[in-house]
Amino acid sequence: MSLPKKVKIVEVGPRDGLQNEKGDVPADVKIELVNRLTEAGFPNIEAASFVSPKWVPQMATSKEVMAGITRKPGVIYSALTPNMQGFEAALAAGANEVVIFGAASEAFSQKNINCSIAESIERFVPVAKAAKDAGLRLRASVSTAFGCPYQGEVPLDSVAYVVGRMRDLGCDEIDIADTIGVSTPLKTKAVMERAIKEFHANRLAGHFHDTYGQALANIYASMEVGIEIFHSSVSGLGGCPYAKGATGNVATEDVIYMMNGLGIETGVDLDKVVDAGQFISSFLGRKAASRAGNAIAAKRAG
């Protein structure tokens, strides 16, 4: 199959990227980051998470962040909502899209949230209904779809089951996530092709972590089977608190650089993304984890 002419990049840095940072990232820094990403031209930014501050202290300022950002018409600002309490908070904060989630691995579901896959999805039934009733977009994320830190291989049928359940809840988009970054291109194609049998290819997204350096190759493999939406995190921020050794999401700068080289339209300004990546990395006191971002920044400085 030929590659798409255009892809949608969902920027997840402000939420998925920052949520595991140990040091406090104040609301004004998060607001500045979201505003820079908005200016860079992203059509969808995952900006907040309405979870218990006890579990994810970094996201305690989500209400403040959603109130403080400068919104651009047409841009989708998403929030993660684990339950009805989270949904109500996201609705009040003006989220355009709420994100629910479930694991494709039974072992991961039990270790992570102490319940089965089926039970975890059942919990989202009221959230999904409320989102639809409120006219919000509903997105689902299927974690550990390519491998699990506890059970290893994840059967394709398990991925298909979760995708089918999320579809039946009325999801507008479903992300297939390589939470621990273990997939390689052939595996990626097999998983995506199975997911496509359950849901529209153009509404499925690839969410790849770069633990083993395979994320860009997996994105390319996904495009070859018809996937046109990808998640990435500015400066490669983030990881998975429940997956030992899992490094961050693939860096947005690297993804945009590759898309530009392939002549695939993203609508995103790479230079502005590099600026945003250098800004947040500077605040965090470390070098950005994006090779393209660092190369471009060094070239400018040179």
Rank of each mutant, 00 (worst) to 15 (best):
L3G: 09
P4L: 12
K8L: 15
E11G: 08
V12E: 09
R15W: 12
D16A: 11
V25D: 10
D28Y: 14
V29A: 12
V29R: 14
K30Y: 04
E32R: 15
V34K: 02
N35C: 09
N35L: 06
L37Q: 06
T38F: 01
T38M: 04
A40N: 07
I45E: 03
A47S: 15
V51G: 03
V51D: 08
W55V: 04
P57V: 00
T61D: 15
K63D: 11
K63V: 07
V65C: 09
M66E: 09
A67N: 14
G68E: 08
I69E: 04
T70Y: 00
P73D: 15
G74R: 07
V75I: 12
P82N: 12
M84H: 07
Q85P: 00
G86K: 01
A95C: 11
V98Y: 02
V99C: 11
N114M: 08
C115W: 00
S116H: 03
I117L: 11
I121D: 03
R123T: 11
V125H: 11
P126Y: 01
K129Y: 02
L136G: 09
R137L: 15
R139L: 07
S141C: 12
G147A: 07
G147E: 09
C148S: 09
P149D: 12
V154S: 10
L156D: 11
D157T: 14
D157F: 00
A160T: 13
Y161C: 02
G164I: 01
D172V: 07
E173F: 04
V182K: 01
P185K: 11
L186R: 14
T188W: 00
K189S: 08
K189V: 13
V191D: 08
E193M: 12
A195H: 06
A195R: 04
I196R: 06
H200P: 03
G206P: 07
Y212I: 03
A215F: 05
N218S: 10
I227C: 06
E228R: 07
H231P: 05
H231F: 02
V234Q: 02
L237W: 05
L237V: 08
C240V: 10
P241R: 05
Y242T: 11
A243H: 03
K244A: 15
A246C: 12
V250Q: 08
E253C: 08
V255H: 04
N260D: 15
L262F: 14
L262Y: 14
G263N: 11
E265N: 11
G267I: 02
V268W: 02
D269L: 03
L270S: 06
V273L: 05
A276W: 00
G277M: 02
S281R: 01
S282H: 13
S282K: 14
F283T: 06
G285W: 06
S290T: 06
A292M: 13
A297F: 03
A298W: 00
A301H: 08
